[in-house]
Design a protein around this nucleic acid. Structure first.
Lengths: 218, 218
DNA sequence: TTATTCGGTGAAGAACATTTCACTGAAAAG
DNA sequence: CTTTTCAGTGAAATGTTCTTCACCGAATAA
């Protein structure tokens, strides 16, 4: 999905061209399609971030189109436009997967505002998806680090060399490496008298480990 | 914990020396201690896999000792020996953390059998701990692989290039790499008509991802 | 028929994670 | 007062994982 490509699917040539022009003016890269079938073909080859769909079209209608689109590209934003706007239509469009809904006739700015808002929302959604999941799972993917967390959940506080002995690892610098790692991930702290202990995030991780272990063993 | 070191904690010099001798004969490396306090000191410096503890001793008793031992070394195996054996004592010893319980007087072989059995059990416990946890968490620690799993949980079946487009990754060989990875981990299969789909393990992983996501976001 | 898309493989290298090594200064024990 | 233990640091070596590149044959479309 290239960033600024936008499909405009409408059988009304005048309206479609006019929307394309408005968008092109503002630096977007609109691609017009006169019907849903053509749109599906082109979109398959070059999925956009945003699609503007007319409600009523000969052949496949707008509702059918957005159903198919959302199935293949759940992240794409869809703005539905329609001449026969009713509350029911709007609601069912939104339920089907449309992200916004504009009644014709609309002003030049209406469509631009809607487009910008939806692109923004998408950017946000894109960045929000699992912000720390990566870090956390990477952290837990190491056996030694898991052992440290479990040890701390058992004992609350441990001094460095106690931990080393507990883990039965001869090289204490190795343990130190993983402790630093966990400290960096904010799962443990080392405050009072050099003692290590779990943070609240660390406790959550321990909970999770138990959940995971349970899941794994059916 | 060196593999074959065994502590023998008993105030009865004759019995202690006799046990030490029996064990040494069989290639173990027994270390005798006449009281619990001394044992704790030595064990701290060199934690063993197995400790044999007398129930009744002047100063710190055997029960107190195993409580402390299990606190610092939950994995150590403890065999309790006692002259005044009752069911109640046996039960409470086991509840406190003893792993085995022998009534005096016992034959040379009784102690050897108990020692060997407990060392075996420990070896087993040691290897059993989270057998695949490593693999699984490593697998989930990659964002692309998580996305693939989620995509498949959404669509049931996907063909290769559909997946590539869905993920919006330009290099299809990269996607292939992760698909192979997931296949190797038995989380997805590719059976009918080249379509990829989740295995039952894969579905469990998806469940887990949701659990984890929930946990993380408080 | 020719080009394009699909669905790969395998090798090389970059990037990242982990381990090992050599060394430190501070505190505690002997 | 000397030695040992504690609790580190930082660099280098190693190991693993991930990405990129170059290529392939089969199927499909133009």
């Amino acid at each position: 999905m290239s960033d600024e490509t936008i499909f405009v699917v409408d059988d009304d040539d005048d309206l479609r061209e006019s929307i394309v022009e408005i968008l092109a003016d503002r630096g977007f890269q609109p691609i017009g399609c006169a019907n849903a079938e053509l749109a599906l073909q082109k979109i398959k080859l070059h999925p956009p971030r945003l699609v503007i769909v007319d409600y009523m079209m000969p052949g496949m209608g707008g509702m059918a189109l957005i159903t198919l689109l959302k199935k293949d590209h759940p992240n794409v934003k869809i703005i539905m436009i329609t001449a026969f706007s009713t509350v029911d239509n709007a609601v069912s469009a939104m339920k089907t997967g449309a992200d916004d809904y504009l009644a014709k006739p609309f002003r030049r700015d209406d469509i631009l505002v809607a487009v910008r808002r939806n692109l923004e929302e998408q950017k946000f959604a894109r960045s929000r998806v699992e912000p720390d999941m990566d870090e956390i799972l990477a952290c837990l993917s190491n056996r030694i680090r898991r052992q440290i967390l479990l040890a701390l959940s058992l004992k609350k506080k441990m001094r460095f060399m106690d931990m080393v002995r507990y883990l039965e690892i001869s090289d204490h610098t190795k343990v130190n490496f993983h402790l630093k790692n966990l400290k960096a991930g904010n799962l443990i702290t080392q405050e009072e008298e050099k003692c290590y202990s779990l943070t609240s995030d660390g406790e959550k991780m321990v909970d999770m480990l138990h959940l995971v272990a349970q899941k794994i063993s059916d």
